[in-house]
Design a protein around this nucleic acid. Structure first.
Lengths: 196, 196
DNA sequence: CTCCTACTTGACCGATCGGTCAAGTTCCGT
DNA sequence: ACGGAACTTGACCGATCGGTCAAGTAGGAG
C-alpha cells in the first residue's frame, strides 16, 4: 500500500482547510491533527503551497468522480446534469455533517484563496476550473445535439454560467451556514439552459 | 473634514485586500502602503478583523450605490436589473484596471474569507449578503407585479440565484484573470428570471 | 547479516504576524 | 495662553508562521 502517512496528512489538511480556509490552517495545525511531526509532512510535501495544491487536486478528483458518475449514465443529457447537481448538493450535505459547518464548493473556495499566493499556483487553479467547465460544456453540447437546449448558444458560455451559479450558491450557503439555500439549485441550473 | 488618516488607511486596505486577499495582506503592509505608523492604524481600528469588516462595509456602500443608481430609475424592473449588471461589470473593469488584476466580487471575496475567522464576524458578513439579496428581491417583486416575471416563483429564491451567478462569475473571472468572462452576464441573469 | 533507502523524530531557525504602549505632537475650544 | 482631547510616533512584545536539519529508526533487497 502507498504511504499511509502521506494520505493521512492530505486527508487531514483537506478537512481543516474546508472547515476553515487555506490561510487559517497552519502547517502545525495539520501536523497536530494528523498525528505527524513536521519533518514527515515536509518529506512528502515540499511546501505548504504544494500541500494546498494537493488538496485542490484531491478535491478535483472528488468532483471528477461525481461528474463521471452523473455524466456516464444512459440518460438524456439534461437529466445527467440534474444528477450532477443532486450529487453535488448531497456532497455538500455530507461535508457539512462531517465538518460541522457548511463548506462552500471546495474547488471554488481554493480558487478564491490560492491565486492570491500568485505565480504558477494560479495557473493550476485556473486549469482545474477549466477542466470543470469543459466537462459541463460537453454535456451541454450533447443536450444541444438532441435539441434539448437551444443550438445557437455557446455551450462553453452556458457551462460557465452553470458552474458559476453552482459555485456562487455554495458560497452563499457557506456564508449563511445554511444548506437549504442549495435546495432549488437543480431548478436554477435548468433555467440557465433554455430549450431550443 | 473627517480624519484623513482613517480614510487613507481604509482605502489602502481595500485596494490591497482586493488585489490579493484578506489573509495575505498584513497590517504592516497596509501601514507601509498608506504611509502610516501602526499605532495610528490601531487608533482607528481596534483589530485587523475590524479593519477587514470596515473594508467589507465600504464595499457594501459601493455596491449599494450601484444598486441605488440602477434600481432608482424610471424604467421597467428588468431593465433596471440590466443596468445593475452593466454597472457591476463596469465596476469590475475599473477595479481591474486600477489594481492590475481582475478582482472578484468584493463582497463575495470577503464573504468567503472572513467567516473562517469565526464568531460575530460571520454574522455581519451574512448580514451584508442578506441586504444585497433583499435589494435584488425587491426589484424581482416589481417585475412580478408587472407580470414580467412568473408570479408563482419565490422572489427571494430568484434573487438568490441572481446574486449567486453574479458572484460566481466574478470569482471565475478572477481565477482566470479574464474580464471577458463577464461579457454575457446580463443575458445569463435574464435567463434566471423567466417570464410568466 | 548488511546495506541502503524510505521514513521519522524533535530540536531549532529567522521572519513575520497582530498587537501594545509610553511618550510625544497637533489642534481646538475656552 | 492654557488645558485637554485627538492623534502620531517608534520602539517593543510574545506568539506563531513556514521551513530546516542532523540524527535516528524501520524494513526490504542482496
Amino acid at each position: 500500500m502507498p504511504s499511509d502517512t502521506r494520505e493521512r496528512v492530505l486527508a487531514t489538511a483537506r478537512d481543516l482547510v474546508h472547515a476553515a480556509s487555506y490561510a487559517d490552517v497552519g502547517v502545525d495545525d495539520v501536523c497536530r491533527a494528523a498525528g505527524v511531526r513536521k519533518g514527515s509532512l515536509y518529506h512528502f510535501f515540499p511546501s505548504k503551497a504544494e500541500l494546498g495544491l494537493a488538496v485542490l487536486e484531491r478535491d478535483w478528483e472528488l468532483m471528477s468522480g461525481v461528474l463521471d458518475d452523473a455524466f456516464g449514465r444512459e440518460e438524456p443529457p439534461l437529466e445527467r446534469l440534474d444528477r450532477f447537481v443532486a450529487s453535488f448538493v448531497a456532497l455538500m450535505g455530507a461535508m457539512a455533517r462531517r465538518l460541522g459547518a457548511v463548506p462552500g464548493c471546495p474547488i471554488g473556495n481554493l480558487a478564491t484563496e490560492l491565486p492570491a499566493v500568485g505565480g504558477p499556483l494560479g495557473e493550476r487553479v485556473a486549469d482545474v476550473l477549466g477542466r470543470y467547465v469543459t466537462r459541463v460544456a460537453d454535456t451541454v453540447r450533447d443536450a444541444q445535439a438532441r435539441g434539448d437546449v437551444a443550438r445557437d448558444l455557446d455551450p462553453v458560455g452556458l457551462a460557465l454560467s452553470v458552474v458559476a451559479v453552482v459555485q456562487g450558491t455554495a458560497a452563499l450557503a457557506r456564508a449563511h451556514d445554511d444548506l437549504t439555500l442549495l435546495a432549488d439549485l437543480a431548478t436554477t441550473v435548468r433555467r440557465l439552459l433554455p430549450p431550443g
